[in-house]
Simulated assay, not measured.
Amino acid sequence: MTTVWKHEGLRGLYQGVTPNMLGAGASWGLYFFFYNAIKAYKKEGKLETLSATEHLVSAAEAGAMTLCITNPIWVTKTRLVLQYNAGIDPSKRQYRGMFDALIKIYKTEGIRGLYKGFVPGLFGTSHGALQFMAYEDLKLRYNNYRNRVSDTKLNTVEYIMMAAVSKIFAVSATYPYQVVRARLQDQHNTYSGVFDVIGRTWRKEGIHGFYKGIVPNVIRVTPACCITFVVYENVSGFLLGFRKGNN
């Protein structure tokens, strides 16, 4: 943070905020949409709740479908964040903003450029799959422990606890793929593919290289995840209640 502040000022700390907001909004919205649609399809005609494995597979499928749509946004976000060689001089920046980055990447690298990091991103669907599996399982076990119906709505503090624990678990288990994907998308380095990134990172940095930045990542994504899940659960509950009230 100190280095970024010295070289780029406040603006440097907010590089890539636009595609991050659009990417996060689109990703979460599409993810919840696909996930719940897949769950509903699998649960159709069944009285019992879905198993942990079924939640895992449903979340992985939803993640893959979401990534197909949102990968170009994450590429532009990574490129904007990694304009560290321009310093505070805007004229030296390779990209002026999100749409400028999208256009330039498409012109110089084609569709392939917008889907850099897609393969490790697919492996990264395991992150969301593990998170949703843990989240659903924690809710189920907690309601069973409290002798309540399995789909009983929790309060805000309980949702925050479930979301935080499931997120930290998922990040810890899948973080290396994020390092590999970011390095593939970095315009300052050239890699021939996923295995080239893995090999060079291992040779130069060892196992620690695959976990660079995990602490700030956990600090950043956990509160965001908790807010997202709390808002989603409460808004969806409100909308369902509102719809029932009108029927």
Results as ranks from 00 to 15, higher is better:
M1D: 10
W5Q: 13
E8K: 08
E8Q: 15
L10N: 03
R11S: 10
L13F: 04
G16D: 03
V17Q: 09
M21P: 05
G23M: 03
G25Y: 05
G25E: 06
W28E: 04
G29L: 05
F32D: 13
Y35G: 04
N36I: 05
A40Y: 05
Y41I: 10
E44G: 11
G45Q: 10
K46P: 00
K46H: 13
L47N: 12
E48N: 11
A52S: 13
A52Y: 03
E54V: 01
E54S: 09
E54Y: 03
L56S: 02
A60D: 04
E61L: 15
T66G: 02
L67R: 10
N71D: 10
P72Y: 05
P72Q: 07
T78Y: 07
R79V: 08
L82W: 12
L82Y: 12
D89Y: 10
R93L: 09
R93C: 06
F99G: 05
I105P: 01
K107S: 14
L114T: 04
L114W: 01
Y115H: 07
G117E: 06
F118S: 00
L130H: 02
L130F: 10
A134E: 00
L138F: 14
K139C: 12
Y142K: 10
N143G: 07
N143D: 06
N144Q: 15
N144F: 11
R146C: 13
N147Y: 08
K153V: 07
T156Y: 10
M161V: 15
A163W: 06
V165Y: 11
V165H: 10
V165N: 09
V165A: 14
S166P: 06
F169D: 04
V171P: 01
S172R: 02
V179S: 10
V179L: 10
V179W: 07
V180R: 00
L184H: 05
Q185A: 14
Q185V: 06
N189Y: 12
N189G: 00
N189R: 14
N189E: 15
F195K: 11
D196R: 08
G199E: 14
R200A: 07
R200S: 08
T201G: 08
K204S: 15
E205T: 03
E205H: 15
H208Q: 13
G209E: 10
Y211R: 03
K212Q: 13
G213Q: 07
V215A: 11
P216M: 07
R220S: 14
T222H: 06
C225I: 02
C226H: 01
I227F: 15
L239Y: 01
F242L: 13
R243H: 06
R243M: 07
G245M: 01
